[in-house]
C-alpha cells in the first residue's frame, strides 16, 4: 500500500482504531454521566442556596441515553440496502426511520438540557455554584452525544484500511 504522506508514517490498523474508538466512547459516556451525578449530589449535600436538581432535569439525560442506544443498534448495511441486496428494499426506509428517531431523541436531550439551563438558571440569574447545576446538565448531554458519535464512527470502520465516514 503506498503511503498517503510524503514521510512514511505508519497509521494504526483499523482494528486498533476501532477498539480505541469504543474505549473513548465508554470514557466520554462515563464522564458525562458522572458530571451530572456530581451536580445532583452537590445540590443535595453541600448546596449553599436552596435550588435543587429535581426529577424533570433527569429527563434530557434519559432521552439522550435512549437515543444513543437506538442509534447504535442499527446495522449500517441495512441503511444502504436497495432491492437487490440481502436485506431487501423494505428494510432501508424502516432503518432510516429508526435512525431518525434516535437522532431526534439525542438532539432533543441536548436541546432540553440547554432549555433547562436558560430557563431555570440563567433567567433567574443565580450565582455560580447554583449555575453549575444547569451547566453540568448541558455538559453531560453533549458528552453523551460525543460518545454516541465516537461509537457510531468506530463501529463503521471497515476492514482494509478504508475509512468510509459517509453518513
Amino acid at each position: 500500500m503506498s503511503h498517503p504522506f510524503r514521510i512514511p508514517v505508519k497509521l494504526p490498523s483499523s482494528a486498533t482504531c476501532r477498539s480505541a474508538g469504543v474505549y473513548t466512547s465508554g470514557a466520554l459516556f462515563s464522564l458525562g454521566f458522572w458530571f451530572f451525578v456530581d451536580a445532583a449530589v452537590y445540590s443535595k449535600v453541600a448546596n449553599p442556596g436552596d435550588v435543587h436538581i429535581k426529577f424533570p432535569e433527569w429527563i434530557p439525560l434519559i432521552c439522550s441515553v435512549l437515543g444513543m442506544l437506538i442509534i447504535n443498534s442499527i446495522e449500517k448495511s441495512r441503511l444502504m440496502a436497495d432491492s437487490f441486496s440481502y436485506s431487501g428494499g423494505d428494510v432501508a426506509w424502516k432503518a432510516k426511520l429508526v435512525l431518525f428517531m434516535g437522532f431526534a431523541m439525542l438532539a432533543g436531550g441536548l436541546a432540553g438540557s440547554v432549555c433547562f439551563l436558560i430557563l431555570g438558571y440563567i433567567v433567574p440569574e443565580y450565582p455560580w455554584p447554583t449555575l453549575y447545576f444547569g451547566v453540568a446538565n448541558v455538559i453531560a448531554n453533549s458528552l453523551i452525544m460525543l460518545s454516541c458519535v465516537s461509537l457510531w464512527l468506530s463501529q463503521n470502520i471497515e476492514e482494509d484500511y478504508t475509512y468510509n465516514l459517509s453518513l
Binding site: 477498539s19 469504543v22 474505549y23 473513548t24 466512547s25 465508554g26 470514557a27 459516556f29 462515563s30 464522564l31 458522572w34 458530571f35 451525578v37 456530581d38 449530589v41 452537590y42 449535600v45 453541600a46 461509537l151 463501529q155
Partner: peptide, 27 residues
Amino acid sequence: LDLGRFLTGFFVVMGIALPAALAHSGI
C-alpha cells in the same frame, strides 16, 4: 466485544470521576 470494551472504559473513568464527585461535594 464492543460492549465489553465500552463498559471497561466506563468503569475506568468512573474510578476517577466517583472520588472527584465525592470530594467536590465534601463527602
